[in-house]
Design a protein around this nucleic acid. Structure first.
Length: 354
DNA sequence: GACGCGTGGAT
DNA sequence: TATCCAAGCGT
């Protein structure tokens, strides 16, 4: 690997040159100086593609033009706006940080890296992004793009998903940073990673291919290296959509599990495909409905959703109950009101179609 | 420090 | 279809 200052300098200068002349990537938060808008965009974009986050960013800014507006909003309105974007703890932390700034910091966004880093939901990447974009401070971002670009131009085979690997890449990212234009450099290296040095890269269009160690050895597809692979577990969610006249029973998910703070129907989770008999049994044991109290519709809607670590097999049973029975933790809500509550993607789709 | 957290697009 | 990945973070 190159350890000389010259190589590092060459790439940084070439990147900034490319950024000035050929990088035409445009995004609403690019060049933005309002730390609130930068922060919001960065939280939305964590592990999320620009194309997916774009609509959410625009809706959030339109609904909450200032951090005070966001801080004053009820939880449910904000979660509803976040619905469908995934990683919902981001939304919870977003609200907590907004209220902290509005209430404890007089609405003034912190302007020092260490203080930005203390905000809930803000880690080293996001703090560096805000500090450099909003305040032009010399902190290098280290995201998936930067890992990939650095691993390739230097031909680094050390895994990026280990403690030591992260430490070393972080040090290198700091050395690579332009001290004169940290904000522009950070944006440029991410744009470069997202448009040229992609997982399947466009080396023919790259300004640095003649000096890229990975490309020179034909190794660009092998870098960066990851050590761990994700284990996917399979789960079976049987939802009993209990309806009495026009009202439906729902409750907020609260356990340490997926979709915390989103709503759902009465859930019977089983260790495999469940028989109707087992659903009836569990409905009585778990929710106190005997088979005399409910009438099941014949159709069972089945679908599957793939998450990063899980595959969820859904079965939706529609059932008419003879009364609005009090079930601990549940509320009964009219079909029309359901669209005020945030639901996981698959449940939201089910609601729309039924 | 390893693991869990969503959804959607690319290969 | 299966797998990986995407502007990471909290626990």
């Amino acid at each position: 690997m190159h350890t000389d200052k010259g190589f590092s300098h060459q790439f940084t200068e070439a990147l900034l040159q490319w950024n000035r002349t050929e990088n035409h990537r445009q995004m609403p938060w690019k060049g933005e100086k309002d730390p609130y808008k930068i922060w919001l965009s960065e939280i939305i974009l964590q592990q999320t593609r620009v194309e997916q986050g774009l609509k959410y960013y625009e809706r959030f800014i339109k609904t909450f033009p200032t951090i005070q507006d966001l801080a004053a909003a009820p939880d449910q309105q904000v979660f509803k706006l976040w619905e469908g974007l995934g990683y919902y703890s981001r939304c919870k932390n977003l609200l907590e940080a907004a209220r902290f700034i509005a209430n404890d910091l007089q609405g003034v966004f912190p302007n020092q890296y260490e203080d930005i880093l203390k905000l809930k939901g803000v880690g080293s990447y996001t703090a560096a992004a805000i500090a450099s974009f909003a305040f032009n401070q010399p902190y290098a971002v280290l995201d998936g793009n930067v890992f990939r670009v650095l691993a390739r131009i230097y031909d680094i085979e050390e895994p990026i998903d280990t403690t030591n690997g992260k430490k070393n890449f972080s040090r290198l990212a700091g050395l690579q940073l332009s001290r004169e234009q940290p904000g522009i450099y950070n944006q440029a290296i991410m744009d470069f990673g997202a448009t040229i040095c992609k997982p399947f890269p466009e080396c023919a269009a790259c300004f640095f291919s003649d000096r890229c160690e990975a490309f020179l050895q034909g190794k660009q597809l092998l870098l960066p290296v990851k050590e761990k692979k994700i284990a996917v577990k399979e789960r079976w969610f049987n939802y009993v959509v209990l309806q009495h006249k026009n009202v439906i029973a729902i409750k907020k998910r609260a356990s340490r599990d997926i979709w915390q703070n989103l709503y759902e129907f009465p859930l019977i989770e089983t260790s495999g495909p469940a028989s109707l008999k087992e659903i009836h049994l569990q409905l009585e044991k778990g929710f106190g409905f005997s088979h005399h109290d409910v009438i099941f519709k014949k159709e069972i809607f089945e679908t599957k959703q793939r998450l990063t670590h899980q595959v969820i097999n859904f079965s939706f049973y529609q059932a008419e109950t003879c009364e609005v029975k009090d079930i601990p933790g549940f509320i009964w809500v009219g079909w029309e009101e359901l669209n005020h509550y945030p639901f996981p993607k698959t449940l939201q789709e089910y609601i729309i179609n039924n």
